[in-house]
């Protein structure tokens, strides 16, 4: 048991590291790669917890995670947004990397503070996955706020999802139907938002969504 718990801790550490990477990468391709790694680590942690708790349902969850997030979602993105994904330009960010890294460190510590009082009597899995999952979620929300590129924002959305589920798999076991629905949902979200991104790219000529600022109060259109 103990080696498995230790292994899960290592996976969790890698998970948060990859989340850091996902938010500071300057190229779309490397953001996508970081997202796939993040999803694979989520699945790995789920598998370890499945063995720890002897839960078949969690094995199923891990399989769905790999299928939906590491295979289907990247494929959907590549199919709908091929040229945008391969574009070798820097993703603009509202905040520079060192400041972001500092803030992310702060967010990680903050989530430990939030969660620490809740962990008494919890499983060893929960005490690792819950704070780090929450940290990844907060970091991904922050990423979403500072990224100015549509594709990077879509991957930010899915990274929030990964954070929530990283915590979720350690604290609940919902039924297979719920997991299937959630997995399918993720794929649908990416498909729809990717098509929207493509439409914006065609119509507006760029996926710099921060340039879309026509709707506001005070000035008549």
């Amino acid at each position: 048991m103990a080696p498995l718990v230790a292994l899960n801790t290592v996976v969790a550490a890698l998970f948060i590291l990859v989340t850091f990477l996902l938010m500071v990468s300057r190229q779309i391709q490397s953001v996508l790669r970081a997202f796939v790694w993040q999803s694979l680590l989520l699945a790995l942690s789920t598998l370890i917890l499945a063995v720890l708790h002897g839960s078949l349902e969690l094995v199923f969850v891990a399989a769905i995670t790999v299928a939906a997030k590491a295979v289907v979602i990247p494929a959907v993105l590549t199919r709908t947004l091929g040229p945008e994904l391969r574009a070798r330009r820097e993703i603009a960010s509202a905040v520079n990397v060192p400041v972001s890294l500092l803030l992310m460190l702060g967010l990680s510590v903050f989530s430990y503070f939030l969660v620490a009082p809740l962990l008494t009597g919890g499983t060893p899995g929960a005490s690792v996955n819950l704070p780090l999952g929450l940290a990844a979620l907060l970091i991904a929300v922050y990423t979403l706020a500072i990224r100015r590129e549509a594709v990077a924002q879509v991957l930010g959305l899915m990274a929030i999802d990964n954070g929530a589920f990283f915590a979720g798999v350690a604290i609940t076991s919902s039924s297979a139907i719920v997991e299937m629905a959630a997995g399918l949902e993720g794929v649908m979200v990416v498909l729809v938002v990717a098509i929207l991104t493509r439409t914006i790219a065609q119509r507006v000529g760029s996926t710099r969504v921060d340039t879309l600022q026509d709707l506001k109060e005070g000035v008549p259109l």
């Binding site: 549509a150 924002q153 959305l157 929207l196 914006i200 709707l215 259109l221």
Partner: peptide, 19 residues
């Protein structure tokens, strides 16, 4: 252009919220 802007904000903020 404005409808796409509206749809983008709608998608990103509400999906983020739900997640």
């Amino acid at each position: 252009r404005v409808a796409l802007e509206a749809a983008w904000k709608y998608a990103v903020i509400t999906i983020m919220g739900a997640t």
